[in-house]
């Protein structure tokens, strides 16, 4: 025979659990909502990475001092020689070093140089890994001072400061 004692306790237990579950469901559904609270953490990290890479590339290095009275940074050299591929290679190398393992997180970018010519502000594409197509991207920038004795056909022949902008995304 099945023991029928304690049936009331069982019913009470079930009723109580249903009550508690309903209450918890109501409370949770009222207060917690799916919000994109921390979506921008990703952007923040990528922006910091990009700025760090550009800052490292903008450090003056003594081995490129060639009689100007001051040392040039790699960044200045790349722009003065209009060496986009060289810049891109160095940028990606630094990016991968920061991430750690190679080919794990691929970084793509489009680098643009903005310069002033008289009253006009012009831009040209310095280097890019591939076309931009609606990726989750951030923008980092760096001022670069360029000497008048440069071989970049885009820029005027004068001492000037140009703005290097890098649109950066992963994937």
């Amino acid at each position: 025979m099945v023991n029928t004692e304690g049936q009331l306790y069982t019913i009470e237990g079930i009723a109580a659990s249903v009550l508690v579950m309903t209450t918890i469901y109501l409370v949770l559904s009222t207060t917690t909502i799916l919000t994109p609270g921390e979506t921008h953490v990703y952007d923040m990290q990528l922006e910091q990475l990009g700025n760090d890479i550009l800052a490292v590339m903008d450090l003056n290095q003594t081995w490129v001092d060639n009689g100007y009275g001051y040392a040039k940074s790699p960044l200045q050299c790349y722009i003065e020689k209009d060496d986009g591929p060289g810049f891109g290679h160095r940028f990606l190398t630094l990016g991968k070093q920061t991430i750690g393992e190679e080919n794990v997180a691929e970084i793509n970018f489009i680098a643009i140089v903005t310069y002033r010519s008289g009253a006009n502000i012009n831009t040209y594409i310095f280097n890019s890994t591939r076309d931009y197509s609606r990726e989750r991207a951030v923008k980092v920038t760096r001022w670069v001072n360029v000497n008048d004795n440069h071989s970049n056909s885009h820029l005027d022949n004068r001492n000037q400061t140009v703005l290097l902008e890098v649109l950066l995304w992963r994937g």
């Binding site: 909502i33 799916l34 919000t35 994109p36 609270g37 979506t39 921008h40 952007d43 931009y132 609606r134 990726e135 989750r136 991207a137 951030v138 923008k139 902008e165 649109l167």
Partner: peptide, 23 residues
């Protein structure tokens, strides 16, 4: 306000495209 942050990135940082998923 999250969306405003995206708009700021579009306008003031000249990022061409942004998307955010929300409920």
């Amino acid at each position: 306000i999250v969306l405003q942050s995206d708009v700021n990135a579009l306008v003031y940082k000249s990022v061409p495209y942004k998307e955010t998923t929300m409920q």
